[in-house]
Amino acid sequence: MANDFSRSAARYFAIFKISAKDMLSFRADFVLTFIMKILYPLVMVFVWTVVFRTSNVTKIGTYNLTGMIAYFFIASVIELAVFTDLPYSMQHDIKHGSIATKISMPIAYLRYIFSSNMINNFIWGSIIGIPLLALITFVFGIHVSVAQFMMFVFTLALGVLIAYSLEFIIGCLSVYTNDINGILTFEGLMASLLGGALIPITLFPGVIGKVMGLLPFQFMFYLPITAFTGSTAIKSVVLLVGVAWLSAFIIIGYFIWKNAFKKITSVGG
């Protein structure tokens, strides 16, 4: 498995050595994404500055102004990891029948689609995300201990896996429906709202906040951000909730994929 992975990685690095012309659009894309990743949270700088000043407080919830602003910048960066093109790749393959022609075995296709998307996502996310994260750490003076960083990596990995499995299920749904764009947009909005990208979930009143603490989306934003800044300790029971959700999604995904693949191959692409 590891050997395959490294071989796929090598293959994709080769594909990644793109022509000069593509390099141009790549650079433009890079600049665009970089700028956008900063512009959106920039709004939050102004908003929270005014809010803190109007209420004349030093803390809202567990966040001071710097922490609050940093939260949104980190959320913006993490978005790179948890929203991928996986469902669209799958929809494209399924609609254009390239699954049936590409590979005959369902597992081989899974390996192909996951590795190609993961690697793409990883490379792109790292190229933009790591510098941005370093910049944010520096600008906001965040102290990241080793323990914090480990927890960050763990919760982020969990979040990424949950996101992937969810996206995979949605990708399978393109077998049953004309276009998954609506479903995917809906999932993105729910993940942002319930996962803490829109606003930290601890700011939600009582019951709502508690419910969000039971859902899988918190692993996509709130928990990794909190782990990184170390603003609140993360209880281990929460991690178990995450693992439980991930397992559930994997199992659901497995059954849906079986059914979907049967449907694809029976129709003949």
């Binding site: 429906t177 276009d179 809906f186």
Partner: peptide, 11 residues
Amino acid sequence: YRVSASFTMVA
């Protein structure tokens, strides 16, 4: 395509 269109409208 009513199903996917409806989903998109809601989203």
